[in-house]
């Protein structure tokens, strides 16, 4: 079965990205595949390369990057949501003349069309919501 995941929140205000990653691992272990993981709403902040964590905490962004690399899964950020929250790749940083690009390369900035496309190709779309 093909799954697409939609994630709405990330640390430290939400653990939706953690729950989503646990689910994604179970999908692969169960012999299924993942078409795409789409980070929407506040979850786009996961790609902010400026985040600094306490030394005893593990980066959820880094865990997603490793997972995506190991299983050839695309990690997408909604461009409109990312712009609103100051998460910019180099192209957007130059387009809008902002001081610096901060999005990690493992996360690709895409349009909402990719969310719809991911939903159409998948047998199941699973949303990991955030309470805020």
């Amino acid at each position: 079965m093909i799954f697409s995941l939609v994630i709405h929140g990330t640390a430290p205000t939400s653990y939706a990205a953690h729950s989503g990653l646990n689910f994604a691992r179970a999908v692969i272990q169960g012999g299924h595949s993942i078409a795409r993981v789409f980070f929407y709403h506040d979850a786009v902040r996961i790609a902010d390369g400026n985040v600094v964590l306490p030394q005893d905490e593990v980066s959820i962004a880094e865990q997603w990057r490793e997972f995506a690399q190991a299983h050839q899964v695309e990690l997408n950020l909604c461009i409109a949501a990312a712009l609103r929250r100051g998460v910019l790749n180099e192209a957007e940083q130059q387009r809008y003349q902002r001081p610096s690009a901060n999005s990690m390369p493992a996360f690709e900035v895409v349009g909402l069309g990719q969310l719809i496309e991911a939903s159409i190709v998948a047998d199941r779309v699973i949303t990991f919501g955030a309470s805020t």
Binding site: H41, G111, L112, G113, L115
Partner: peptide, 16 residues
Amino acid sequence: ARATEALEAALVGAVF
């Protein structure tokens, strides 16, 4: 921005 962003996704769905 939740409501607005959800509506934007719905609009893109309709465009598709």
